[in-house]
């Protein structure tokens, strides 16, 4: 219960924000927080987490808040890579060949979701393939 005390503000914020399917449990010294919500709430929760545990140095929380569960096929996605182009691949893994690239901040279209990590996307130029969702942000 010690961790639920330490992160009480975070858990309270998630509850207050009405996070869907919020699930908080503690196991072997790690607090697991799961749920689904909007991108804005996810950002707010992560900022709270970062304030309670600066630089995430304690390693005592695994927070999996899904903010893209509601993103449907046909949605526009912005490429939010760090600096490089986004690789578009033949299949849903980095072992698959690159079949195209999307520039940073280019807007692409969601064709389908393979899993939480890989989505099938299409560029305006008609290039289609799988990209890593970490680098795709829904255009709201």
């Amino acid at each position: 219960m010690a961790l639920q005390e330490k992160y009480k503000e975070l858990i309270d914020a998630a509850t207050a924000a009405g996070v869907n399917e919020l699930n908080v449990r503690e196991q072997d010294g790690v607090l697991y927080i799961d749920g689904a919500t909007s991108g804005a709430v996810k950002q707010q929760l992560w900022d709270t987490y970062e304030r309670l545990d600066p630089n995430y140095a304690s390693g005592d929380v695994v927070m999996n808040i899904n903010s893209v569960a509601g993103v449907v096929e046909g949605s526009k996605l912005k490429v939010t890579t760090n600096s490089s182009n986004l690789n578009i691949r033949k299949g849903p893994s980095t072992n698959d060949d690159i079949v195209g690239k999307a520039a940073r901040h280019e807007v692409v279209t969601l064709v389908g979701k393979e899993n939480d990590q890989w989505w099938l996307i299409k560029t305006d130029q008609g290039e289609q393939g799988y990209s890593f969702t970490q680098y795709l942000t829904p255009v709201e």
Binding site: D28, N55, Y56, G59, V62, M63, N64, N66, Q117
Partner: peptide
């Protein structure tokens, strides 16, 4: 990394 369902992340 947190979305990958790890046991923990040792940063």
């Amino acid at each position: 990394l947190n979305a990958l369902k790890p046991k923990k992340v040792d940063n």
